[in-house]
Design a protein around this nucleic acid. Structure first.
Lengths: 159, 159
DNA sequence: TTTTTTGCAAATGGTTTGCATCCTT
DNA sequence: AAGGATGCAAACCATTTGCAAAAAA
């Protein structure tokens, strides 16, 4: 019992400290670039942190509005690339009409299976892919910034 | 000398027969779908066959116009997806603003290194990737239709 | 005070679509 | 004759941008 509570507390602390860490990363990035820390950017950052899985600019803007933050879509569209440049989120699923973003968790690199029928997106992890990627980049002396692996097709349920 | 000429002729025949083959593939596809074979579709198909490397709808339309074919952009945009569905071309480079297409050569599956500085696209082939893809799809019982592997970054020359 | 940011509305630009007309089958 | 296909121009629609007012440094 004590152990369970302890674990909960530790977990909570971990989440809080992570949030603080990424927030100051963002602040540092802005300062270093001569950009300003504003309430709007803080709100966008906050909401992006809370989004689960993939999300798009439009949806984030909508949620902010629903929560009473009167932040324009333009600002959202202007802030998300900053978060990308800070390295806190990345954009994925380039095939769709909208831009999709997702959080970057260093421990959890994954790629996507995308069902063309139902639109479901399954994430998968494949350690050996990373090795091959590195090999290819070395061969061409190419410095990778972002690697996109997406398999489009038909998922088990839709068959 | 005779051998060289012979090889040239054989090569020429190969190209011609390939062209005829893909053309009839397209015709069969249309018939089978209850769609019609038209001069416009033939011209788009022809021009797409001649395009080298990646190309986009806009460019193909421009070339047709330059060659005197008065084919509307709308028709080009409507025809390219048919060629994709026929399996003669596929779309790649989803990250850019425009849709990019390229030919499908069964013998030559490749992926892309895309330089974010100069925009150069280097194709690479990596046999072992295909194996892993198959493994992942098997694991999730996912039926792949299109696999997209793109590495964005900075090429040797731009560093 | 200087420089950046914001919100609004308008612009962008590749792609899609409605519709009358034209063409295949 | 009947159902598609075409061309044109208008519509889409996510994203970007110009600009004046507001806020951060």
């Amino acid at each position: 019992m004590r152990a369970v509570i302890l674990r909960l507390i530790l977990n909570f602390l971990k989440i809080v400290s992570m949030a603080l860490k990424t927030k100051s990363q963002f602040q540092n990035f802005l300062k270093q670039q001569g950009l300003k820390w504003t309430p709007e950017r803080e709100r966008v950052f906050q909401e992006a942190s809370v989004m689960e899985g993939h999300f798009e600019a439009e949806e984030l803007a909508y949620r902010l509005r629903k929560k009473g933050s009167r932040i324009s879509k333009a600002t959202v569209y202007r802030t998300l690339p900053l978060l990308v440049r800070t390295g806190l989120i990345k954009d994925v699923i380039h095939g769709e009409k909208h831009q999709h973003y997702e959080h970057i968790h260093e421990e959890n690199l994954h790629d996507h299976l995308i069902c063309l029928k139902c639109g479901k997106i399954v994430e998968f992890e494949e350690e050996s892919l990373t090795k091959i990627e590195r090999k290819v980049c070395a061969k061409y002396q190419f410095q990778p910034q972002k690697i996109l692996i997406e398999i489009f097709g038909c998922c088990r349920e839709c068959r």
